[in-house]
Design a protein around this nucleic acid. Sequence first.
DNA 1: GCGATACTTTGTCGATCGTTCCAGATAGCG
DNA 2: CGCTATCTGGAACGATCGACAAAGTATCGC
Lengths: 193, 193
Amino acid sequence: MARTREFDLDAAVNAAMDVFRRKGYEGTSMRDLAEATGLGSGSIYAAFGSKDGLYLAVLDLYRQRYAAPMVDLLRSGNDAREVIREVFVGAVDDITGDGRHLACLIVGASMERAHQDLRVAERLRSTTQSLELALHDLLAEAQLRGQVTSDRSATDLAGFLVTSLQGLRVMGAINPDRAALTRYAEVALTCLN
Amino acid sequence: MARTREFDLDAAVNAAMDVFRRKGYEGTSMRDLAEATGLGSGSIYAAFGSKDGLYLAVLDLYRQRYAAPMVDLLRSGNDAREVIREVFVGAVDDITGDGRHLACLIVGASMERAHQDLRVAERLRSTTQSLELALHDLLAEAQLRGQVTSDRSATDLAGFLVTSLQGLRVMGAINPDRAALTRYAEVALTCLN
DNA sequence: GCGATACTTTGTCGATCGTTCCAGATAGCG
DNA sequence: CGCTATCTGGAACGATCGACAAAGTATCGC
């Protein structure tokens, strides 16, 4: 055995995520990443192999930090309408949260990287699918209880809600008006009636 | 006077648009643009000044070619639900149309360029606002006729519809499933009930 | 405390970036 | 037809890109 790694891998990935969200994949240079993580470029390559490798690690962290808790919330067993509203409010908060213009990594990756890197595309599909599935299960049960319309299948409703979430991210990037986004989200929720 | 410009400016901008939609702003190099337009880099700089200048021209052409006809359709005086459905179907067609993976320039620009270039941000706001306004006017009249719910303001409904359109673009980039996107769009339209 | 091992740093690689400049080509005007 | 203004294509610019190798440094088992 020998010298142990000195820096916190997770903290580095986290710092890299901020940069990627602000500048996008192509817009971010290894210099930017080295500066943000406080590492030498050599260390980054030793730890992640390449810029793509680091980006994939960032994507995984994003999924673990943002998508997974959302799924957990949806599966918490609480009232369907209530938790779905919470998810939407949380998304709007995230979009308009700080002034650092942190775009959604998922949306950015979808637009910029999905067509170029198969591993990115696969992760995106997996992430949205787990979210859709959690929504589907929640909605299906709520439909049985008559709390949600049965005019549409739970699958379609779930897909639509995810679509709306993505749309809110885009609208937020164009005009981060918290009140307006909240109202748009409320309209989306009326589709459950 | 002297020699006249030999190439078709509009055709060049059009070719550049394809590249930007496929590769994004940062992912596109001047080499790519020169190759796609068939021009030398000198001609591009003479005509557009810079890469940014060409990108702005592309954005304007996109607006003129795709957003403006949409607004015209919404203002054509036909039945509200009918034309809105047409807009959504057209969007889904556009997303899943060919296999060339042509992402929506508006969404791409929103994610990648809006925070970096004020002129881009301004164009994006103007484009979405004109679309929202056309929807608003259409919906307000439909509300008066009782064809559309009055539970929500026409403004909120219009904003929500644009949000859904943006969301469809993102979902299409992740998984270009035409049937699924169509069903999501149909759910969105039920918000007008 | 010593050798072995793994991590960090630094400098540099060829390639490519956006941009500029120049020589040649071309069309209008006298 | 010659002059000249403008456009064209390509060469070349410095800067920066992602990636890597070598050298230095710190930590472990012994």
